[in-house]
Amino acid sequence: MNEAARIPVAQPAPLLSVRNLRTWFHTFGGVVKAVDGVSFDVAPGEILGLVGESGGGKSMVGFSIMGLIDPPGRIEAGEIVFEGEDLARLDEARMRRVRGKRVAMIFQDPMTALNPLYTIGNQLEEMLKLHTDLPSARRRERAIEMLREVGIPQPESRLDNYPHQFSGGMRQRVVIAISMIARPRLLIADEPTTALDVTIQAQLLRLMKHQVTQNAASLILITHDLAAVSQMADRIVVLYCGRIVEKGRAADVIERPRHHYTRGLLDSIPHHDKAQARLRQIPGSVPDIRKLPPGCAFAPRCPAAQDICRRVEPELVETATGQAAACHFPIEAIR
């Protein structure tokens, strides 16, 4: 297929536009630049995968969008434009009206997201009370409807159960129900299935995709699991040491990575459908983010690094297909 033909002529206005975001933590050991100059867009109805290893800053991007950065952390610079409004400039009171209603977040551990002292019915109806003007009779109906949608059997009776009466997978379903009940425009899911078993993982990913599509919402899926992200996302952003190293359409990034880090990550996954003698590995480990080397942060581990990589930080360069890599010597696709 002709590459150019796949690009839509007029891009719709993005739902979320993150521009040059810097979220830094001022600690005793130095400044942790958890997010350092990150820019990306999320289109309406799009699923964006935010990928990287621990320390990559992917969770901090999510927390920054939600306005959940606590001291010693601070958003130093940048814009988070959501439906035309810069969330980075909102005060806490106005941010509270955004959270839950227009942007919702799901965390890795479903237990911390649920209050153990209230029934899940209370917690679902509380979201409706806060963010909609439904009368109380309708609220219970809507809560039951929502539980049924996320696949909880006998929702009428489960409504009066407490979180501890649910298994891990069911709890995460309840969390998804709570986050989607006010019909937010954007859902941020931070490692939503990492704590769960593989058979449950697939169920939940499918459920999230369905919920998001049905409500015409967008999803930012934050995960270290490249395989899961390749199954879910329309576009992928790869982070390393707080900076974007590559972004583009999911199929492009997975099949034709341009950055050596993305390539290394993909290569180090053992192939479940073919056996190999040795895995290709990225040498070394993620550097201390307080003492990043000058130039490209990945240079010390990169097989293609040259002198310039250790001196000059590469810029994100976009190709004709909309795939961008921050690399002086990007991998050229072999066609």
Partner: peptide
């Protein structure tokens, strides 16, 4: 069979719900 079907594989679409086993352990 269910375990193998549920495991995500790079670059393949999400397996349809019909292949999956229901419920939990």
């Amino acid at each position: 069979q269910a375990l193998l079907a549920a495991a995500p594989v790079l670059g393949t679409p999400l397996p349809p719900a019909a292949d999956a086993i229901k419920g939990e352990v």
